[in-house]
Design a protein around this nucleic acid. Structure first.
Lengths: 214, 214
DNA sequence: CTATGATGTGAATTGCCATTCACATTGGAG
DNA sequence: CTCCAATGTGAATGGCAATTCACATCATAG
């Protein structure tokens, strides 16, 4: 009965992870304080030492999702300077992320769905918006150097990018993993790519001076 | 206390409608047997005269959604023979549908989300798949008459079509209606259209004989 | 070593939910 | 008009959820 005592920081991480895993396996319905506690070998009331309540646990999960999305943006930008390659890499990372953490799309959708607290909806809106903004930023920088057609609206392209993954993720979930997200991702990306790639123009290099990485 | 008695057919429709409305206003969390009953001026146990349980009510809602999607496909096909115009019209209808029935995207997402009964997930998968199939069909027929570029994969185009609406609907929900779905739809569609429209080729008319409307 | 605050436990509370059932009412067939 | 099957009612049941609280135990600072 005596579970090892851990400091609050560690526990908070464990709890957020366990919650995300539960979301992945059974959706919001499976995410109860008891279930999270059970998964950690704790008793439900123990979680209240580390979180004020279930809502705060969800907030912590959202934080984790925000961080992962941000990581992917940074990694894809660090990997290459070419806008189109960045997008392609980001697509791969993003697909891998939601494949390995089914809880992420599930929470994103269910928050839109459950109409939970308006504050959390706003928070999630900020997260998605900031991700879309990051993608749009990549597009805009690609336009600056003549790599991406200048007559495309960066925000729209960014949404289309999201539109590659989202319906695919939905079908993947609904089909119980049968739908081939990766294959669809490749095809849809090749279509989007040919849609935005600037052709027949020499690439104008970035101006000299300090490298803008963001 | 004495609520008028209605035949089961009428009640079943009322119940499904009330459930869809509740989904729209508060998501799955707001959809309880009691809430549906209250909305109809009934007592919870009364619903069990018309549905075996909550699951069956959800099934009825899914039926309604399936019918509406199917209606939109048929209406857009009946309105014009041109594939691109059909798609544009379908997009308008689809946007209007989810704007006026917030419960639809919410149920679709929450089923993916809640991991509810596997059977219902399969049912929903079938519904979405059949809608995508209908869109792909429009694309293919456009390709047959040289209106749509033949080197595009019809299924991928259909998914991209879905990808216009889905992320927009998500942001719309999350932002509490602030995000402009219609505007985004127009922009994204104009991009997709220029991506798939066949250019510089004379349109090859349909062969003679009975008009294929499906 | 020991005392104290942080962490974990078990039981109790409260509330909502889906569902059932015995009973009441009603609308329409005959 | 009468009766019966269909429909609606109200109370009860059982389950599970989130949360609280008094108490136990541990880790570690001093």
């Amino acid at each position: 009965m005596a579970t090892a005592k851990l400091d609050t920081e560690t526990r908070r991480e464990q709890i957020a992870d366990a919650a995300l895993a539960l979301l992945g396996s059974g959706g919001l319905a499976a995410l109860s304080v008891s279930a999270v506690a059970r998964r950690l070998g704790l008793v439900p009331s123990a979680l209240y030492r580390h979180f004020r309540g279930k809502d705060r646990i969800l907030d912590a999960v959202l934080d984790r999702i925000r961080d992962r999305l941000h990581d992917n943006l940074e990694r894809s930008c660090a990997a290459t300077d070419d806008a189109l390659e960045r997008l392609e890499r980001l697509l791969d990372l993003h697909v891998a992320l939601i494949r390995e953490n089914r809880g992420i799309p599930r929470l994103v959708f269910s928050e839109a769905t459950l109409g939970g607290s308006p504050e959390r909806a706003r928070r999630l809106f900020g997260i998605v918006e900031s991700f879309v903004g990051g993608v749009a930023q990549i597009v805009r920088r690609g336009q600056e150097v003549g790599r991406v057609r200048a007559d495309r609206d960066a925000e729209t392209v960014a949404m289309a990018f999201l539109g590659i993954v989202q319906p695919a993720a939905l079908l993947w979930h609904l089909s119980g993993g049968k739908f081939d997200v990766t294959r669809h991702g490749r095809r849809a990306w090749s279509m989007l790519r040919s849609e935005i790639e600037a052709v027949g123009q020499p690439v104008r290099p970035l101006p000299d001076g300090p490298r803008r990485n963001r």
